[in-house]
């Protein structure tokens, strides 16, 4: 069993932070890697990229948005409760090196995944400009942490309630125009990663994205997480989760994420009715 030692609600209760006791995983994990969590005996295996690790405390931190039955079930877990299974660290870690100026673009819970990567890139000696976006001020997460992890932080909201009124790509364009960006990292909703990648391609800036397709085992055994990268099929769980953003077939990924859409809705609605 993997005990929850800290729990926070963010983004109006739609985003939950769990710090979980998992000393073996904490000791091994590096930025960009993920874990698979399963709440109980009948639970689903849910892959989540780690937002932080603490080797001394032997804990890992995940931050997830409540989108379906399984994450709604995770949300019911309190401090002192435990996940039945946590498996990891899985996937390849982010390749961190000093390249010069890096733009880190994050949206939604993608910011949680972006945070340790941003920190590591800055620690490696890069000048890191981060752009984070949310629909509104109240939905933005990890502002302080991202500020501390970056050299500069830019904020965007869709409704203009905070920072730049508009999308992350508006600010990204401005920075790319100024020239001398060596690398972009984009983690967030698939459409965001798609449009960031389309834009950085115009400016010839290499771009890394982190993908989170449907997965079962996370060890390369089932192939459920197939993604097309540069015309070739890759397994996100073992070949990724990070890929060259300019090579990803985002439209296929978006379609594949809808595979169980109807089942998920049904299951979620039933669960919500029971909870009420």
């Amino acid at each position: 069993m993997f005990k929850i030692v800290k729990r926070e609600e963010m983004s109006e209760g739609n985003v939950i932070l769990n710090e979980i006791e998992a000393p073996k995983i904490a000791a091994k994990a590096r930025p960009g890697q993920f874990v698979i969590l399963k709440a109980n005996e009948d639970g689903e295996r849910i892959p989540l990229t780690m937002a932080d690790t603490d080797v001394k405390k032997g804990t890992i931190t995940v931050i997830y948005m409540v989108v379906g039955k399984s994450t709604a079930l995770f949300k019911t877990l309190k401090v002192g409760d435990a996940y039945q299974d946590v498996i990891g660290p899985l996937g390849k870690p982010t390749h961190i090196e000093k390249v010069g100026t890096v733009v880190c673009v994050g949206g939604g819970t993608g910011i949680a995944v972006l945070h340790p990567i941003t920190r590591a890139l800055k620690e490696a000696g890069n000048h890191v400009i981060s752009i984070v976006g949310a629909r509104s001020k109240d939905l933005l997460i990890l502002e302080e942490q991202m500020k501390a992890a970056s050299s500069e932080l830019r904020i965007c909201t869709d409704d203009g309630s905070y920072g730049h009124h508009g999308f992350v790509t508006d600010v990204l364009k401005e920075i790319l125009e100024s020239g001398n960006v060596d690398l972009a990292v984009a983690i967030g909703p698939v459409p965001m990663m798609k449009f960031v990648s389309l834009m950085t391609k115009e400016y010839n800036v290499s771009t890394m994205v982190s993908l989170n397709p449907i997965m079962v085992d996370g060890t390369g055994m089932c192939g459920g997480c197939r993604v097309t990268i540069g015309g070739q099929t890759k397994f996100a769980c073992v070949d990724g989760p990070e890929f060259d953003g300019h090579q990803v077939d985002y439209d296929e990924l978006m379609m594949r994420l809808q595979a169980y859409c109807d089942d998920e809705k049904k299951c979620y609605n039933e669960f919500c009715m029971l909870e009420e």
Binding site: G43, E44, R45, L73, C267
Partner: peptide, 14 residues
């Protein structure tokens, strides 16, 4: 994952 029991269990199957 015993998905043949879905939605009694949480893992779906086509």
């Amino acid at each position: 994952m015993k998905a043949y029991k879905f939605p009694e269990v949480d893992t779906p199957i086509p």
